[in-house]
């Protein structure tokens, strides 16, 4: 029965909404803290969800963030409607970015977002369909990293 236990929460994001950037990741972080999760897990989930949130705000039209917390792990799935990523391997390269000059002036577009997510999640999957959108799936083990 324990596997069925699951806390779910859903958030929506709008592309271009820079003024509210970081709000969803902040809410996720607060919720995970309230649920009493290990501080390192909360920290890693907060970093990864911020990077994913910023990607939607910077590049997509809209997105959904779905959070699921089970006794074993935390899963965050971010789906967006947007231009998609034609070459995922290239996008995963540290330092590679398609950010505009305006985004760079705000301190974004360092080409560190996706690598930051990969480093902080225990399992990270990315699927993208150019012209339609992108899905990021990240899982964080609650008892630290699996070996």
């Amino acid at each position: 029965m324990e596997e069925d236990l699951c806390y779910r929460q859903e958030y929506s994001l709008k592309g271009g909404e820079f003024a509210r950037a970081g709000e969803v990741s902040r809410r996720i972080k607060d919720l995970l803290k309230e649920l009493g999760l290990d501080v390192q897990v909360v920290r890693r989930a907060a970093i990864a969800s911020f990077e994913a949130e910023m990607n939607v705000i910077m590049y997509a039209f809209q997105g959904t963030v779905r959070l699921a917390v089970t006794p074993a792990d935390v899963t965050i799935i971010v789906d967006d409607h947007g231009p998609g990523i034609p070459d995922i391997e290239l996008a995963m390269t540290e330092g590679y970015s398609t950010a505009t000059r305006e985004m760079r002036e705000l301190g974004f577009g360092a080409g560190m977002g996706l690598p930051n997510i990969k480093r902080n999640a225990d399992v990270f999957r990315i699927v993208s369909e150019p012209g339609r959108g992108t899905r990021l799936e990240m899982t964080f083990a609650r008892d630290g990293r699996p070996s």
Partner: peptide, 17 residues
């Protein structure tokens, strides 16, 4: 320590404690 002045600074600072 930064020269950035936009609200994302607050988000990052709060998320990182």
């Amino acid at each position: 320590i930064t020269i950035q002045i936009h609200p994302n600074v607050v988000a990052v600072a709060v998320l990182k404690d």
